[in-house]
Design a protein around this nucleic acid. Structure first.
Lengths: 113, 113
DNA sequence: GCCGGGTACCTTGCTACGCAAGATACCCGG
DNA sequence: CCGGGTATCTTGCGTAGCAAGGTACCCGGC
């Protein structure tokens, strides 16, 4: 019943998900903007990935949203972390380190005790 | 046509795949054994993940296989890297570094210039 | 006036992955 | 002869990522 094992299991899946949470940690962000950041980092290919992801986060109560006017263009939906989202992000930070080190270890050929 | 971009795109998907390649780099391995290593590293949950993965690798010409007797139990199918598999692993090592740093950067809140 | 392109939202349909569960079979010891 | 460890592989489910398409706002150029 290692509570972190589930997180690790989802890690391969949910890296992107938690990157989004991290990006919204300190300020409200909107999707189009997030896509640009994630694309610049090479982590995402298209909007078709991010919008459904944000819907899931909202459905699961990890983010809240508000509509705001845009200075130029249609209104934007801004995303902010809920306490639950914050907790999830914190758990991810722990799991990510373990995951990263496992992959480093294996890929660098230091496995096989 | 950045040839590495495709690898990065598949990275979220294929971490496990390339971990398997890395594990077979220096010696022939069999699936049951690989599952144990990967499970110990927290990277995989069950055999149902690894066997189809190995089939894919074989189908795509990244590994070769041979059957060998087991000292105790049914015969084992051993996997070894092909030159193509070796190249794929090498490409992954590059991509993994970039990916890892992107995630680190975002998760540690150093994004948003 | 309208038309194209940037901004911004979201959905649909496809492919494929990870996993739990189950099937099969070898070998050994009790 | 039967259960458990070793070892292979398959089936079926849920769901993620992506390309592509759809809608609509706003602005500047023609």
């Amino acid at each position: 019943m290692d509570s972190s094992s589930n997180v690790v299991a989802q890690l391969r899946r949910g890296v992107l998900e938690h990157c989004v949470l991290a990006l919204t940690e300190h300020e409200a962000r909107y999707a189009y903007d997030l896509v640009n950041d994630l694309a610049a980092a090479g982590l995402v290919a298209s909007e078709g990935t991010v919008y459904p992801l944000l819907s899931r986060l909202r459905r699961d109560g990890l983010v809240d949203t508000v509509w705001r006017e845009s200075p130029s263009g249609p209104p934007r939906r801004y995303y902010t972390l809920t306490p639950q989202g914050r907790a999830s992000l914190e758990a991810f930070r722990q799991s990510w380190r373990g995951f990263r080190e496992s992959v480093d270890h294996i890929v660098d050929g230091k496995a096989r005790s």
